Measured scan of single mutants.
Amino acid sequence: QVNIAPGSLDKALNQYAAHSGFTLSVDASLTRGKQSNGLHGDYDVESGLQQLLDGSGLQVKPLGNNSWTLEP
């Protein structure tokens, strides 16, 4: 069960990665100043990332080996 409060997208993504045990490689300029609506409930990694990114204009991309990145 994930419980991440709304706020900074950077912070939300870092909390989610730490909670879910995956690696997220992101260029900080992509997420700077963006906000997230947070995340509450049970999600697989990709669904949770998509939910956190909702409205940010960013997309999640798998890199393999439980690693992910973001792209515009």
Rank of each mutant, 00 (worst) to 15 (best):
G41K: 03
L70N: 01
L39V: 06
N65K: 10
L9C: 05
D54C: 15
K61A: 06
A28G: 10
S29E: 14
P62L: 09
Y43N: 02
S47Q: 11
D27E: 09
A17K: 06
E71Y: 10
L49F: 08
P72F: 10
N37W: 09
G21T: 05
G21E: 06
K61M: 07
H19W: 14
V26M: 11
R32M: 14
L13M: 03
D42T: 14
P72Q: 10
Q59C: 13
T69V: 12
G64I: 03
L24W: 07
G57T: 02
V26P: 05
N14S: 14
H40D: 09
L39Y: 01
S20M: 15
L49W: 05
A17I: 08
N66H: 07
S8E: 11
G48H: 00
A12I: 09
E71C: 10
D27L: 08
L49D: 00
P62T: 08
V60K: 03
W68D: 01
L52Q: 00
G21D: 05
L9Y: 01
T31M: 09
A28V: 10
G57F: 04
L63W: 05
Q59H: 11
G21R: 07
D44H: 06
L13A: 01
S8K: 07
W68N: 01
L58T: 02
L49T: 00
L53G: 01
L13H: 02
K61R: 13
A18P: 01
S29L: 10
K34H: 09
L13S: 02
P62Q: 12
G41R: 01
G55V: 03
L53F: 03
T31S: 02
K11L: 13
P6Y: 05
P72M: 10
T23N: 10
D42A: 13
Q15R: 06
S67C: 11
L63F: 08
Q50R: 15
L24G: 04
Q51F: 09
A12Q: 04
E71M: 11
V60C: 13
N14T: 13
Y16G: 00
A17S: 07
L58Y: 03
F22K: 01
G57K: 05
T31H: 00
V60G: 10
Q1T: 14
S25N: 12
Q51W: 08
L49I: 08
D10V: 08
Y16N: 01
A28W: 13
